[in-house]
Simulated assay, not measured.
Amino acid sequence: MIYPTTVAAAEAMFTAAEADGVIITLVSGYRSFATQAQIHDRFVADLGLPAAEAVSAPPGHSEHQTGWAMDIGDGSGACSFTTCFADQPAATWAAANAHRFGFIVRYPAGSEQITGYSYEPWHLRFVGVEAAADIAARRITLEDFLEAPR
């Protein structure tokens, strides 16, 4: 289940984007263990295990199973789940504004060695407004934020 806090923040973010003339849609939210297993297995079959684990978490390790993560789109399907989504208005708006609603782009470009995952401009993680603002201001990953002394 996706947490009500995540849902409320996402709804506020989508409404703010729409007010700015940008459509952001929810493409994927909560995933059960079984659903994540199917997705991961498909990637393993297509790419092999090492490459699959750079783009798909094994079941039991996906942020989608936490209730705090979601994948976004723009309703058109343009560049869905590919890095060219970063150039779509929904992704550029989210990258610039998601922190105001408590979200971060969880797997930012150039951070693959830190996060363990390929760049995913569509994958947002709710961390709360204060943490998201700090992460955005310092241009760091969630891993860096969690390791930094406070």
Rank of each mutant, 00 (worst) to 15 (best):
I2P: 07
P4K: 10
V7A: 12
A8N: 14
A8D: 11
A8W: 10
M13Y: 01
F14T: 08
A16Q: 00
E18F: 06
E18W: 06
A19Q: 07
D20R: 11
V22A: 00
I23F: 05
I23M: 08
I24F: 00
T25A: 09
T25M: 00
V27L: 14
S28V: 13
A34V: 14
A34E: 15
Q36C: 14
Q36F: 12
Q36D: 05
Q38L: 14
I39M: 11
D41R: 05
D41F: 00
R42V: 00
D46C: 13
L47P: 01
L49C: 08
A52D: 11
E53H: 15
V55G: 01
S56F: 02
S56V: 09
P58T: 06
P59Y: 03
G60A: 01
H61W: 13
S62C: 13
S62R: 07
Q65I: 06
T66N: 05
T66W: 02
G67F: 01
A69I: 01
A69C: 14
M70S: 04
D71H: 06
I72W: 09
I72P: 08
G73Q: 10
G73E: 08
G75N: 08
S76H: 12
S76Q: 11
A78Y: 05
A78K: 04
C79D: 03
F81H: 10
T83M: 10
C84K: 15
C84V: 12
Q88I: 01
P89E: 04
A90F: 04
A90P: 03
A91W: 00
W93I: 04
A95S: 02
A95N: 01
A96V: 03
A96I: 12
N97L: 11
H99E: 07
R100D: 12
G102Q: 02
F103I: 11
I104C: 09
R106F: 08
Y107D: 10
Y107N: 11
P108N: 11
P108D: 03
S111E: 08
S111R: 07
I114Q: 10
I114M: 12
G116R: 07
Y119E: 09
P121I: 05
W122Y: 06
V129P: 07
E130R: 03
A131Q: 11
A131Y: 01
A132P: 04
I135V: 04
A136E: 05
A137I: 13
R139Y: 05
T141D: 09
T141W: 09
L142G: 01
L142P: 01
L142D: 00
E143M: 07
E143Y: 10
D144N: 13
F145R: 12
F145Y: 15
A148C: 06
A148G: 06
P149Y: 14
P149D: 14
R150F: 14
